[in-house]
Amino acid sequence: MVTIPPGRDSSRHVVRIDRTVLDDLGIETFHPQPSATRRRGGQVELEFEGAGSRATRVSLDGRVPTQLGAGARDGDISAVVDGDVQTVSTRTWVLP
């Protein structure tokens, strides 16, 4: 789950996720559904309708592909709030 804090421009919220995170972890579904999706280099940018003065929560669902080997998978997830990019580095361990 990604939580985007409310900002001055609460009409839209943007999440950027490394394409490798989506592919390696088999992420296929977002809730709520993004209103727009764009590719930006090695990232996917998802735009969501803002929740007004409340934080926007986005859940990511999927299944790790069975052919993916064991080991650590690293990537970044960012939220864009009022033009400021707030990034969290992630590490997911895939076990056999």
Rank of each mutant, 00 (worst) to 15 (best):
M1V: 15
V2I: 14
I4F: 03
P5L: 10
P6A: 14
G7S: 10
R8T: 15
D9T: 10
S10Q: 12
S10I: 14
S10Y: 14
S10C: 14
S10L: 11
S11K: 12
R12P: 03
R12G: 11
H13R: 14
H13S: 12
V14E: 09
V15D: 06
V15H: 12
V15F: 06
R16Q: 01
I17L: 07
I17N: 00
I17G: 02
I17Y: 00
D18R: 05
R19C: 01
R19F: 04
R19E: 02
T20M: 14
V21L: 14
L22F: 09
L22K: 10
L22V: 15
D23L: 09
D23Y: 12
D24H: 08
D24Y: 02
L25C: 05
G26W: 01
G26P: 02
I27M: 09
E28G: 05
E28F: 04
T29F: 04
H31R: 15
P32K: 15
P32W: 13
P32S: 11
Q33R: 10
Q33A: 14
P34L: 03
S35A: 10
A36V: 07
T37S: 08
T37C: 08
R38I: 06
R39E: 11
R40Y: 12
R40N: 06
R40F: 11
G41D: 03
Q43I: 01
Q43R: 13
Q43A: 03
V44N: 06
L46W: 00
L46V: 02
E47L: 07
E49H: 12
G50D: 00
G50W: 00
G50S: 01
G52I: 01
G52Q: 06
G52L: 03
S53N: 08
R54I: 00
A55N: 01
T56D: 00
V58S: 00
S59A: 07
L60H: 04
L60T: 00
L60I: 08
D61M: 13
D61Q: 12
D61P: 07
G62W: 03
R63N: 11
R63M: 05
V64T: 06
V64H: 02
P65C: 02
P65F: 07
T66Q: 04
T66P: 10
T66M: 11
Q67P: 09
Q67Y: 15
L68Y: 15
G69V: 14
A70R: 14
G71N: 06
G71Y: 08
G71H: 04
R73Y: 11
R73M: 10
D74F: 09
D74M: 05
G75C: 05
D76K: 08
D76W: 07
D76I: 11
I77P: 00
I77Q: 00
I77D: 02
A79N: 03
V80I: 14
G83A: 05
G83R: 08
V85R: 13
Q86W: 14
Q86A: 12
T87D: 09
T87E: 09
V88K: 04
S89L: 12
S89R: 10
T90C: 03
T90G: 03
T90S: 06
T92Q: 13
W93K: 15
L95P: 12
P96W: 13
